[in-house]
Simulated assay, not measured.
Amino acid sequence: MVRRVVFGEARWRATPVTTADLNALMEKGLLWLRGDTARWDVHYAFFARNLGQVQALGREEGNIHFFTPSDVVIA
């Protein structure tokens, strides 16, 4: 049985999210899973004010998701 899990982080800073930030989130996820990724469908989500260049990764990778304030706030 495969289970799904989402590891996420919210950032509200003017500086953009970097690949180092994304890698740190992924490492935290692996620690939580204790390296056992075979039974998990793992996804990562960043909620950020400024996504910078990492947003292109979301288009390339199906398990990385990025959200800006306009994605989550209904005006």
Rank of each mutant, 00 (worst) to 15 (best):
M1A: 08
M1E: 09
M1D: 08
M1G: 08
V5T: 05
V5R: 04
V6A: 01
V6W: 00
V6I: 04
V6T: 01
F7K: 01
G8I: 04
G8K: 00
A10N: 01
A10T: 05
A10C: 07
R11K: 15
R11F: 05
R11N: 04
W12H: 10
W12P: 02
R13I: 01
R13K: 05
R13V: 02
A14C: 00
A14D: 01
A14T: 03
A14F: 00
A14R: 04
T15A: 06
T15R: 04
P16F: 02
P16H: 07
P16N: 05
V17L: 08
V17N: 01
V17E: 00
T18M: 00
T18V: 01
T18Q: 02
T18E: 01
T19M: 08
T19S: 11
T19C: 06
A20N: 08
A20E: 14
A20G: 02
A20F: 03
D21C: 01
L22S: 05
L22Q: 05
L22M: 07
N23P: 01
A24R: 14
A24L: 13
A24D: 15
L25M: 06
L25W: 06
E27S: 10
E27A: 14
K28E: 13
K28H: 08
K28D: 11
G29E: 03
G29S: 07
L30N: 14
L30Y: 14
W32D: 11
L33S: 07
R34D: 14
R34C: 11
R34G: 13
G35D: 03
D36L: 09
A38T: 07
A38F: 07
W40N: 11
W40Y: 15
D41W: 02
D41K: 03
H43S: 13
H43C: 08
Y44M: 07
F46W: 10
F47K: 02
F47C: 07
R49H: 11
R49A: 10
R49G: 00
R49Q: 13
R49C: 09
N50G: 03
N50Q: 11
L51P: 04
G52A: 11
G52Q: 07
G52N: 08
G52Y: 09
G52K: 12
G52E: 08
Q53C: 06
Q55V: 14
Q55C: 06
Q55D: 10
A56K: 15
A56Q: 15
L57V: 10
L57D: 10
G58S: 10
G58I: 12
R59G: 05
R59M: 06
R59H: 11
E60D: 15
E60L: 14
E60I: 14
E61D: 11
E61C: 12
E61W: 10
E61H: 13
E61P: 03
G62Y: 05
G62A: 11
G62F: 03
N63R: 15
N63F: 14
I64N: 04
H65L: 05
H65W: 06
F67L: 14
F67K: 09
F67P: 07
F67Q: 08
T68C: 12
T68Q: 15
T68P: 02
P69Q: 10
P69M: 13
S70M: 11
D71V: 10
D71A: 12
V72G: 00
V72P: 02
V72T: 06
V72Y: 00
V72C: 06
V73W: 09
V73H: 09
I74F: 13
I74K: 11
A75M: 09
